[in-house]
Design a protein around this nucleic acid. Sequence first.
RNA 1: GGAGCUGUAGCUCAGUUGGUUAGAGCGCUUCAUUGACAUUGAAGAGGUCACAGGUUCGAAUCCUGUCAGCUCCACCA
Length: 706
Amino acid sequence: MDKVYNHKEVEDKIYEMWEEKGFFLPEVKKGKKPFSIILPPPNANAPLHFGHAMYVIEDILVRFHRMKGTPSLWLPGADNAGFETQFVFEKHLQEEGKSRFDFDRDELFGMIMEFVEKNRGGMERQLRKLGFSLDWSRMKFTLDEDVVKVVSQTFKKMYDDSLIYRAERLVNYCTFDGTSFSDLEVVYQERQNPLYYIKYGPLVLATTRPETKFGDTGVAVHPTDARYKKYIGKEIEIETVLGKAKIKVVGDEAVDPEFGTGVVKVTPAHDFTDFEIGKRHDLEMKQVIGFDGKMNHFAGKFEGLYAKQARKEIIEEMKKKGLVEKIDDKYTHRIGLCYKCGNVIEPLPREQWFVKMAPLAKPAIDAVKKGKIKIYPKKFEKLYFQFLENIRDWNISRQIVWGIRIPAWQCGECRNWEIELGDAPSKCSKCSSKNLTQDQDTFDTWFSSSQWPFATLQTGKQGDYEYFYPTTVMETGYDILRWWVARMVMVGLYITKKVPFENVVLHGLVNDPLGKKMSKSKGNIVNPLEIVEQYGADAVRFALVFGTALGNDQALSYPKLDASRKFTNKLWNIARFIEMNKIHNSQFTIHNSLKDLKTAAENKNDKEWIDKADKLSREVTEDIEKYNLNYAAEKLYEFIWHQFADIYVEDVKNRINENSYLVLNSIFLVLIKLLHPIMPFVTEEIYQRFNPGEFLIISDWPNEQK
RNA sequence: GGAGCUGUAGCUCAGUUGGUUAGAGCGCUUCAUUGACAUUGAAGAGGUCACAGGUUCGAAUCCUGUCAGCUCCACCA
């Protein structure tokens, strides 16, 4: 054996061997409860980031259960990542001087698919580099035909159960990208904009957006505001740049009497708060800004101007007419920007598909309350309940091409909607018209993701769903507890009548060495694969679980990586010592049962160390079962280095004989086994040197009989 | 504005139902050594556990408040 452990010579070779031998494929044993995890599918198109390296937790669990003899499945997948991917692709088009408007929908979809297929291998190769024992034969993609079918079926079932409705809602619309965004995708920024005090008949109100005036269908004041109480419920006559108009005054609690003059113009079609006020008082929606960002016919002579331009011209005109009382130039407020292109988000009304969430949320709350699903660490239960107890209906339409197209066709005659699986319906079921067009929208990526546990298993190998569902563990970052985990529980329960997983295990974020969140804009991204290259996958894996409690964020720590790499070398050198002291004729016999080993042991000290190893083995087993992987890692590190190597090896050194050698060797192999889930490569390499032809990955867990 | 998390050694973090002298890694100091390993070994310094109260025989741990950092949600015309 070399003096120094070289991970580069070992890791790829070992992984290939594991994969080739099919060790990642579970053996289905009817009647035996399996262990299963569905990998949270990384973006098919993007390289892994450090958060993905945290999936090492899943690998540790799978390897542990595999060694315990449980049929263990870890199913990989790739996510089409909707808008994210389409955006990256459009950047490429831009570089070629093209845009998505040069292609029709199918062409564009095909091109993106090709683009993704080309990049997809990267992510999979990286998962292999990290040593993840994924069953690649069961790999699924969110746009696989069979998955699309499952997702569409779910939509239809929801529609038939009256959980789906169509409604005009304000969306965060980016007129530049031509798509709406979820609230999450809007970035708020502090900006200084003029606040205009404009005259509305007898009232004066403050607004930053005078151009939306044409869409005003009400004026609101606080219901208890003494100044304006007399106007509530009445219509007032106002002078506008386009002539006189009448408008209703309503009283609404959303109005802050302290702000401005305490009077608000209500534009339900262009402001989220106003939309709510409008709904409460039954005000009309009047859209005056189009999806192209330009003023429409309601704006009279300002039609065709971009909103921003119209604002300037309207204010000039209003000044001339004496309708502007004053302008506050120092006003700062927060405005929503497109997180992709940075342009101002325009709230616009648009017909969308919505899912009624309240009926789905209740069973999901119960599942956790009744312990059918356990959340680790427990502190995250609060977030889970908070989200579900205040849930709002879910807008599942997205105005992009790269996703699963919504299987809904609208009749051009009677406006009836037909939901159809497979081919387009031939005629309208209401009026028999053949004039049907499919909705242009695709599903929100999270809509298909919410079905991932059963969608993957139902479309996988024959019998997988029956055997592996519900899955044992869903392990992911706590940051997507609401957006993904909670929705999987809701939709999973709704479709399958079973929880999609029994345990939710949540890890924290991996931040940069200074504790700051890694992000492209900050330029502090660390590529996990470079770190693997430098320190070895074992060291990276160990460093990620060592010294950080589950669910807590951690700063990437080079000293910790270094310590972990030294640990792999320490293991290597213990192995080397044992090999060098091999006593002639002696076998590397492994006593997997420490009880048997103790019976065979002759020396008192040896017997004591067997007990210590036995205690450690029990503790580590329990720690892994409770997802306290940091405890397992810390105990193994301390014991192997500072107990076993520093004390026991030094003790045996001077009194080595055949029997002591057997004990030393056996204890070491037990330690190697206990460490294998966390550090699979170096342990497998050592094991095979001691036991040619045998494989640690499928060997028995200490004290376990298969 | 609402909610949550975090605050422990110079740095990064553990501390598992409250229970002796609060731990680890890195760094630092002293010494040893080419003997499995200098990617080593031995010894050591270093902490009013953010702050202020409270509960308790006993608090880093439980409660209240304050301060600081982070995250999520909502969002002001």
